[in-house]
């Protein structure tokens, strides 16, 4: 289910910076990025409805701050940053709303996965989702970006503001924990 993020389009960025073409260009951004951003968000929050709301907020925030986007960073990096911040903020609010500790969050996410109606019935994929849900938030982010989106460490580093070395270590740890999960749940 990995969805390739679209290639950077310098013309799209240029159109975003022109007041006359800004809105049309942003509609193109929505068309190009809604799918890859949706999957990134969905893998974090697990629920389709929550992912839909967060995706909507992501584009609204991006639209509100499009004036400040100068094209120094890649368009995808800028959008991923907003999407991930929105996802993390949502998860934090949910923890507060449901009075969950970080440990409880895993079972909450597993419940969401088990009750998810939008699944294709692949048992192994479902098991992997549960294994990923058991990871700490940062490792979950890193694993999703590297494994599902096949994102380069350099871009992940720009998005998450973490060094490449730390990201590699984090991914390695995440894979180890997932392997252990599969061993424990054989």
């Amino acid at each position: 289910m990995a969805k390739e993020p679209p290639r950077e389009d310098s013309r799209l960025i240029e159109r975003l910076r022109q007041p006359e073409t800004c809105r049309d260009a942003f509609n193109d951004v929505i068309r190009q990025y809604s799918e890859p951003l949706y999957w990134q968000i969905r893998r974090m929050v697990e629920s389709h409805d929550d992912a839909n709301d967060i995706l909507q907020n992501t584009f609204l925030k991006a639209w509100q701050s499009v004036e400040g986007f100068r094209g120094d960073a890649k368009l995808s990096t800028w959008l991923y940053k907003i999407a991930l911040n929105e996802s993390i903020t949502f998860l934090s609010k949910e923890r507060k709303r449901l009075s969950l500790s970080l440990d409880d969050e895993e079972s909450h996410l597993v419940n969401l996965i088990e009750s998810d109606e939008y699944v294709d019935g692949d048992a192994l994929a479902l098991k992997l989702r549960k294994a990923v849900a058991a990871l700490p938030e940062k490792q979950r982010l890193v694993f999703n970006m590297k494994y599902y989106d096949e994102m380069k460490y350099e871009q992940m580093s720009e998005i998450l503001g973490t060094s490449v070395g730390a990201l590699k270590a984090s991914y390695h740890l995440a894979v180890k924990k997932i392997e252990q999960y599969f061993t424990d749940h054989d």
């Binding site: 289910m1 929505i30 949706y38 893998r43 839909n52 995706l55 998810d116 294709d120 192994l124 096949e150």
Partner: peptide, 20 residues
Amino acid sequence: RKDGMTVPDGYFADFQARME
């Protein structure tokens, strides 16, 4: 790299129109 997740039919087309 399959995550087993799906979306409602026509979700992305609807989302784009709604978002615009």
